[in-house]
């Protein structure tokens, strides 16, 4: 088994702010996307069960090397960094094309992506890679069982309300994983130490044989702005005009709303 895990460096969304004066992001601390921690951990667990090599792959500027180091410390076998000025600010379709170009040169049985990244969160790149490589794709995966004898996988995918769809896919395949799939692994000190010493391969556009200018992006480079305030809702209070009124008279509004929402009926907010 060879597993490729696509990981992404993102500004920590819990603390980043938009600075009105500078008209750019402030309080930017780059980290590995939390969903990638889930993905890499699942890859390592698959390796424990069935034997595999785990390759972490990222596309990003020089600083993005940090997330590959994190992956190696968590136990990934090898890491590849696609890094070139020509790759600056790619839009999602370009990102998937660049990643897919590299993946196509490798041997692999499984490509794992996050269902949705924390920063731009388009939930596109997995689908883009699958389309580019003409591979089967299963999204929002919450469980993975690999069958090496039949070279296939049975996976669960997340639907509404905790429901699951069970899907069989031949390998190789692209799976995009949901956060509930697994908990991050806690590597042994020895694994961490080994990870610190491993090499990271860096490839530029030339090494990939990719002429980025030839590829039309789907979007112009985005302009960032302050988030638009969402309409503030004002609560409807439901208190009886007189405390003497029995509850049955005070509750109907709440009960009606709850009824509508619970039955999934049409309602206007």
């Amino acid at each position: 088994m060879r597993i490729i895990v696509c990981v992404k460096q993102v500004p920590d969304s819990t603390i980043v702010r938009f600075d009105l004066r500078a008209k750019s992001l402030a309080n930017v601390f780059y980290t590995m996307d939390p969903i990638d921690e889930v993905t890499i951990s699942e890859a390592i667990r698959i390796r424990e069960r069935t034997g595999a090599t785990v390759t972490a792959l990222t596309l990003g500027p020089p600083r993005a090397k940090d997330v590959l180091r994190t992956c190696l410390k968590m136990g990934a076998d090898e890491a590849m960094h696609l890094c070139d000025e020509a790759f600056d600010n790619p839009d999602p379709s370009l990102t998937s094309e660049i990643l897919a170009t590299q993946i196509a040169t490798l041997e692999y049985d499984l490509v794992l992506c996050g269902r949705q990244s924390m920063d731009t969160g388009n939930g596109f790149v997995g689908a883009g890679i699958a389309q580019f490589l003409d591979l089967p794709l299963v999204t929002a995966v919450t469980r993975i069982d690999i069958f090496t004898d039949t070279n296939s996988a049975t996976v669960h995918r997340r639907l509404k309300g905790g429901d699951r769809e069970i899907v069989e896919t031949p390998l190789p395949a692209v799976l995009t994983v949901d956060t509930v799939l697994t908990k991050p692994v806690y590597p042994k000190l020895q694994t961490i130490m080994q990870g610190l010493n491993k090499d990271i391969d860096t490839l530029d556009a030339k090494a990939l044989g990719l002429e980025v200018n030839r590829v039309d992006p789907g979007f112009s480079t985005p302009t960032l702005s302050q988030p638009k305030p969402r309409l503030k809702k004002t609560a409807t209070l439901e208190t009886g005009a007189s405390p003497a009124l029995p509850l049955a008279f005070k509750l109907p509004l709440a009960a009606d709303r709850i009824k509508l929402i619970a039955s999934g009926g049409v309602q206007d907010k």
């Binding site: 500004p11 819990t14 985005p222 960032l224």
Partner: peptide, 11 residues
């Protein structure tokens, strides 16, 4: 984008 801390506009 960025967990609701910014908006992005693109063509």
């Amino acid at each position: 984008v960025h967990g609701g801390n910014a908006d992005a506009t693109a063509t």
